[in-house]
């Protein structure tokens, strides 16, 4: 059993973590839902999110830890810059327009890069870095979750994804404990995919992947079955994704080899989300398509995607 060396008690840590996760998850999931109700993203001319995409996504996520482990940090940073810039551009171009979006992306990423290298000597510096990173990560999660759901991702696929990530979390937290090393090794580097805050000498956070799954689950539930399903989904996220995730270390003294508290939260949320989906399908029937959602009273008038001049009829028959 590892020895706790923290200057504050585990209960205090747990409560702080609870507060950080609660604020972060609530803001990101409700932001994603608000975005879904208010903004229409441009979608590909042909294609809708399907089961094969889930398989590809899970395969990619499974490879990620190894990439993080073996690629040099500068290359990881470059890949993260491309990922965040793409996600933020797709997500906020319909609202801000091209110029302002790129300016915002440049500022957010540039500031994060700068603070990562110059402000990590003090708690206040850490807090500024966390605050700025959290905005970046939160906006990214909101954008990507909407990209997927507005691209046709059904609640069924979100449930599968959550279940797959549960298996992933268990494997990479126990059998191949790479997640620990990733979190600890990459902390304080630019564009670290975490949302969180520092208090004292402790960092408290929640991963981008977790935020993305919560946002997907909430938005997909709303699209599929409306506000009542969204309320149930939000409740499940709060219980399994926030309360249980925050308090399980306290209950089980859940420390890792670095004496950090690392909770594989999808291992808790994934099965619950899947069961919740099965219950909703049984209770509410088939999911609504995007077209049916847009035709329903749930769909508020939305900001349409930036439209180009209509193209002439193609030269084909």
């Amino acid at each position: 059993m590892p020895v706790t060396t923290e200057p504050i008690s585990l209960l205090q840590q747990t409560l702080t973590e609870f507060g950080v996760i609660l604020v972060g998850v609530s803001l990101v999931t409700s932001g994603a839902l608000l975005y879904f109700r208010k903004v229409r993203m441009e979608r590909p001319p042909i294609g809708t999110f399907n089961g094969r995409d889930i398989v590809i996504l899970l395969a990619f996520i499974s490879v990620l830890p190894f990439l993080y482990g073996y690629l040099p940090y500068w290359l990881i940073t470059c890949l993260l810059i491309i990922t965040f810039a793409s996600a933020l551009y797709l997500g906020y171009n319909p609202i801000l327009g091209r110029g302002w979006t790129w300016l915002g992306i440049g500022l957010l990423i540039g500031l994060n890069y700068w603070t990562s290298h110059h402000l990590m000597g003090t708690t206040a510096g850490w807090q500024l870095w966390w605050a700025e990173l959290s905005i970046l990560v939160g906006l990214g999660a909101i954008a990507v979750s909407n990209l997927y759901v507005q691209g046709g991702m059904k609640l069924q696929y979100v449930a599968w994804l959550a279940l797959g990530l549960a298996v992933y979390d268990i494997i990479f937290a126990t059998v191949l404990p790479l997640t620990d090393q990733l979190v600890a090794g990459y902390l304080a580097h630019p564009l670290d995919p975490l949302l969180g805050m520092r208090f004292g000498i402790d960092n408290y956070g929640v991963g981008l992947g977790d935020l993305l799954v919560y946002a997907l689950f909430l938005v997909a539930a709303y699209k599929a079955y409306g506000a009542k399903a969204a309320r149930i989904a939000f409740g499940l996220i709060l219980v399994m994704g926030v309360v249980v995730t925050a308090f399980i270390p306290f209950l089980f003294n859940f420390l890792d080899t670095e004496l950090d508290l690392l909770v594989p939260s999808q291992a808790l949320f994934g099965p619950a989300a899947y069961l919740c989906y099965l219950w909703m399908r049984r209770r509410y029937g088939p999911e609504r398509t995007m077209a049916q959602y847009l035709a329903s009273a749930d769909a508020a008038p939305a900001v349409p995607p930036a439209r180009r001049a209509p193209a002439p009829e193609p030269a084909s028959v």
């Binding site: 441009e42 979608r43 590909p44 001319p45 042909i46 809708t48 046709g152 398509t289 995007m290 077209a291 847009l294 439209r307 180009r308």
Partner: peptide
């Protein structure tokens, strides 16, 4: 089936 029509 999902969107009612193909994209733009």
């Amino acid at each position: 089936a999902e969107f009612g029509e193909p994209g733009e």
